[in-house]
Amino acid sequence: MGKTTKRARHTPPLSADRVLTGWQGPAGTRIRLARAKDAEAADALMATSGDGLRFMPVLRTAIEDGMAASAMLAGLGSSATAAYYDAASATFTDRPMNEALTTVCLTLVATDEQDHTVGVLSATAPGTIVDMAMNNGYTADKAMALSLFVAKIHGLAVAEHARGQNIAATLLKRTWQVHQQLGYVLLYGSYEADRDLSAFYARNGYTVHTPGETFPLDRANLPFRLGAGDDQCMFTRWRPRH
């Protein structure tokens, strides 16, 4: 008899429903898209992250109105990215810039068995990069389009009583999964240099840069570098080259 070969397993495309209803997380949690009822608790939890971060007001309003990440959800369910670009393009045309960009901002929460928020990760449009692009001669439309390829991890926080259970790492994993399917090339963020987080981000696939270090954005076809102040460490994760 001839040898039999196993068929390659293809992971089905991530659906909008999966992001809305969520995944089973560690320690009995559920990881899902933030809903209107989560906004207040998630915002308060963000403020405990060490650098006093909160949701941008326009993003909190979008979460409460159900518009946050709406273009991203419209683009899920297919292995192609055209649906995402079409949905974002329509939004960018119809709404003011700040409102339009909230439709490409992903905020995930981890909830416990009582549906209380015990973790939050907010990945937003890369405002600094958009501004830098415009300062380098990009039109507003082309600068906004960068938010379809690059996202910033604005904040990540887990309630003190829920720490040490892999919740933060799971939030990072699911955030990366969504952005990978939508064709993003870079996720980045920063944290205060006096916080000992380098090993955590390195374990989760990110390159941690030294305080004040800049890095090129040539892999995103951008002719400038990005960095933070001497009191901040940047962390980056690029889509693998094929």
Score class of each variant (00 low, 15 high):
residue 11 T to R: 10
residue 16 A to I: 07
residue 18 R to G: 00
residue 19 V to P: 07
residue 21 T to Y: 00
residue 21 T to H: 02
residue 22 G to S: 02
residue 26 P to N: 09
residue 26 P to A: 03
residue 27 A to Q: 09
residue 28 G to N: 03
residue 28 G to V: 06
residue 39 A to Y: 04
residue 42 A to R: 04
residue 47 A to F: 13
residue 50 G to I: 08
residue 52 G to E: 11
residue 52 G to F: 11
residue 53 L to P: 04
residue 54 R to I: 05
residue 60 R to H: 03
residue 66 G to D: 05
residue 69 A to I: 00
residue 81 T to P: 01
residue 81 T to S: 11
residue 84 Y to S: 05
residue 86 D to M: 09
residue 86 D to N: 12
residue 86 D to S: 10
residue 89 S to E: 13
residue 92 F to Q: 12
residue 97 M to H: 01
residue 97 M to I: 09
residue 99 E to H: 06
residue 101 L to T: 05
residue 102 T to A: 09
residue 103 T to K: 08
residue 103 T to F: 01
residue 108 L to A: 02
residue 111 T to L: 06
residue 117 T to G: 02
residue 119 G to E: 04
residue 120 V to S: 05
residue 123 A to G: 05
residue 124 T to M: 01
residue 132 M to K: 08
residue 134 M to R: 13
residue 134 M to N: 02
residue 136 N to E: 07
residue 136 N to G: 07
residue 147 S to M: 03
residue 152 K to W: 04
residue 152 K to Q: 15
residue 156 L to N: 02
residue 162 A to T: 09
residue 166 N to A: 15
residue 166 N to R: 15
residue 168 A to P: 06
residue 169 A to Q: 14
residue 170 T to L: 05
residue 172 L to F: 13
residue 172 L to N: 10
residue 173 K to D: 14
residue 175 T to H: 05
residue 175 T to I: 09
residue 184 Y to F: 15
residue 187 L to T: 14
residue 189 G to A: 09
residue 189 G to K: 03
residue 190 S to Q: 15
residue 192 E to F: 14
residue 192 E to A: 15
residue 194 D to L: 14
residue 199 A to W: 06
residue 200 F to Y: 05
residue 200 F to A: 02
residue 204 N to R: 08
residue 206 Y to N: 08
residue 206 Y to M: 13
residue 206 Y to L: 11
residue 208 V to H: 04
residue 211 P to N: 12
residue 213 E to M: 12
residue 214 T to L: 03
residue 215 F to D: 04
residue 217 L to V: 05
residue 218 D to R: 10
residue 218 D to Q: 14
residue 221 N to T: 11
residue 224 F to A: 03
residue 224 F to E: 10
residue 228 A to Q: 11
residue 235 F to I: 00
residue 242 H to S: 14
